[in-house]
Design a protein around this nucleic acid. Structure first.
Lengths: 152, 152
DNA sequence: GATAAATAGTTGACTTAGTCAACTAGTGTT
DNA sequence: AACACTAGTTGACTAAGTCAACTATTTATC
């Protein structure tokens, strides 16, 4: 099979790993774990999110998650209330403080990316976004990256 | 500024993070750390590599690296000899066993990617690779992802 | 040419993120 | 009612990575 293609694919992966690494490193200066940021992201973008939802979406250990959520609760970033329908599940929602916290992180990430994009010409920016969209649609159609394997 | 662009960029990053995560998870089944695999990769693709080289290229802690290299040396995956020119530096090279070890890992990764690419039509494959190359050239020109900040 | 400053790599001590398994409490199934 | 199953918590642990101090050597400065 086309080993050139494989090598190019892997070359891109290495390259993009370092891109993501750079962006992540930036966020990590904000004294939050990557996992924590992702959790905040999910909570910010959903309502009545459950721990199981997060476990599934983020492929994170539920024990670990439980502790992270406990920390967030202590810091008043979120509220947890038992579901009426099923009292085993806890519905999680960000408080105003939690939303604020996420927004600060989010803005900082946006600013960093803005800085990167600002350096590009309009044409390059268009090309870049088109290429990204292209890759997403091609890889999404056949594979299921969205839902990684279940975690305990 | 164009906040749509930022959101698309970030959306791609999230998506590709999960792609890479999936690929990495695969390698991680091989009882090697990601860092270890990268180290093997660098050693395989270069000769007389030094610890400092690796620290710079992989943005890895030199203490941690030192221990990983020690393990590899114990397992006879590599040789370390003092440089004549500068006796502080140690020149690292993979042994046959080390090369073999990397090749096994490498083949396993290749097979996994082959599996992904196999599902694509020839046209999609071309588009995919073209998009990847596009992204690389656009992002590389203005930013320096290749050389992350120095580590101690 | 001696002394200071810098660099390569090692070591020890430690922290933190994440894992694993066992457990409680509640729900669905027969 | 008994059984299996799911949601979430807790305790015990480990691997990965960090940080700082140290040795040995090289380079720069006076």
């Amino acid at each position: 099979m086309n080993s050139k293609a494989i090598e190019e694919f892997r070359s891109f992966n290495r390259f993009y790993t370092s891109v993501i690494g750079l962006l992540d490193k930036h966020i990590l200066n904000s004294s939050y774990t990557l996992a924590e940021v992702r959790i905040l992201y999910e909570l910010y973008h959903g309502k009545d999110v459950t721990a199981s939802d997060l476990v599934e979406r983020l492929s994170i250990d539920k024990g670990y998650l439980s502790r992270v959520l406990l920390q967030f609760a202590k810091r008043k970033f979120l509220t947890r209330e038992r579901s009426q329908a099923d009292t085993r599940v806890v519905l999680i929602n960000l408080t105003q403080a939690g939303k604020k916290e996420f927004e600060v992180l989010n803005k900082s990430s946006n600013d960093q990316i803005k800085e990167i994009l600002r350096k590009l010409s309009g044409k390059d920016l268009d090309l870049l976004l088109a290429s990204m969209s292209q890759i997403k649609t091609i890889l999404k159609q056949k594979n299921n990256y969205e839902k990684p394997d279940q975690r305990r």
